Amino acid sequence: MKLMKLISSDKILLGLVGLVAVGMSFIYLGKGAVTPPQSIQAKSAATASLTTNSRISALEKELESKLQANILQMEGAGKVQVSVSFSTGLKTEYARNQNVTKSTTKETDKTGGTRETTAVTDNNQVVMPSGSSQPVMVMEDRPEVAGVLIIAEGARDPKVREEIHTAVQTLLNIPSARITVRVMGGP
């Protein structure tokens, strides 16, 4: 008799363990699946990040080319190589539709007391043109220059090195400490 009870309680215990395992697998599989809207949002954010990084790289390359072209025109500079890095990303400001609503309510109770309540609602939304997924841009600033490295053949001459340094500082309007001019070595 005890043996039958033990066997039946083992079957019940085994059944419960099996149910818990199946339930846990459903929970695990349910959390692992990404719903399409989440997937689209993740891809959109990744695309925006890649687009921003490629735009920053393009701006760096454009600035390097312009600086190199200007320095090459300087007397005594010789061959020149320029590297520019930014410390910040693009700064973008979007148009906003700002609505501020103010309402005042005055109440009088039975005993003659008055109570005044003021509610202020501030609605500040980004302006989206109809049919477009991009907001209206008001301003876009270039990133801040972190540093500039110029390697020039003519940098052996201290006068040429100083002229290159001053020209870059003037063109970019950055502190002198962010500019390094070195002598080009090798063949």
Score class of each variant (00 low, 15 high):
His165Phe: 15
Gln81Ile: 06
Gly18Ile: 10
Thr166Arg: 15
Gly15Met: 11
Lys106Phe: 05
Leu63Cys: 06
Gly186Gln: 07
Val181Phe: 02
Ile40Phe: 09
Thr104Tyr: 01
Ile164Met: 09
Leu59Glu: 06
Ile40Thr: 14
Thr92Glu: 08
Ala33Thr: 09
Lys106Ser: 11
Ala152Val: 07
Thr105Trp: 01
Gln68Ile: 07
Thr117Asn: 11
Ala45Gln: 14
Gly32Arg: 12
Met137Ile: 15
Ser133Ala: 13
Met4Leu: 14
Val126Pro: 03
Gln68Pro: 01
Arg96Leu: 05
Leu172Trp: 01
His165Leu: 15
Lys43Ile: 07
Asn123Met: 06
Met24His: 01
Ile12His: 08
Val138Arg: 10
Asn173Lys: 14
Val168Lys: 04
Ile12Asp: 08
Gly23Met: 09
Ala146Pro: 00
Thr117Met: 06
Ser87His: 00
Leu29Met: 12
Ile174Cys: 05
Ser83Asp: 13
Lys61Met: 03
Ser25Leu: 15
Ile27Leu: 13
Thr114Val: 12
Ala177Ser: 14
His165Ala: 05
Ser39Tyr: 12
Leu59Ser: 06
Glu140Lys: 09
Asn99Trp: 02
Leu14Ile: 07
Arg55Phe: 04
Ala58Val: 03
Val181Trp: 00
Ala33Ser: 08
Leu16His: 03
Gly186Asn: 08
Gly32Lys: 14
Thr108Arg: 13
Leu19Phe: 13
Ser65Met: 07
Gln169Ile: 08
Gly147Ala: 04
Ile71Glu: 04
Ser39Lys: 12
Glu62Trp: 00
Arg182His: 06
Leu14Arg: 07
Glu144Trp: 03
Leu3Asp: 13
Ala119Glu: 11
Val82Tyr: 03
Thr101Ala: 09
Leu19Arg: 01
Met137Gly: 01
Pro158Gly: 01
Ser85Ile: 09
Asp141Met: 04
Asn70Pro: 02
Phe26Val: 08
Pro158Met: 04
Pro187Gln: 10
His165Ile: 03
Lys106Cys: 00
Leu72Val: 10
Thr108Ile: 14
His165Trp: 10
Asn173Gly: 11
Lys110Met: 09
Glu93Pro: 00
Lys106Ala: 10
Ala69Ser: 15
Ala95Gln: 13
Asn70Phe: 01
Pro135Trp: 05
Val126Phe: 08
Lys5Cys: 04
Gly76Leu: 08
Glu163His: 08
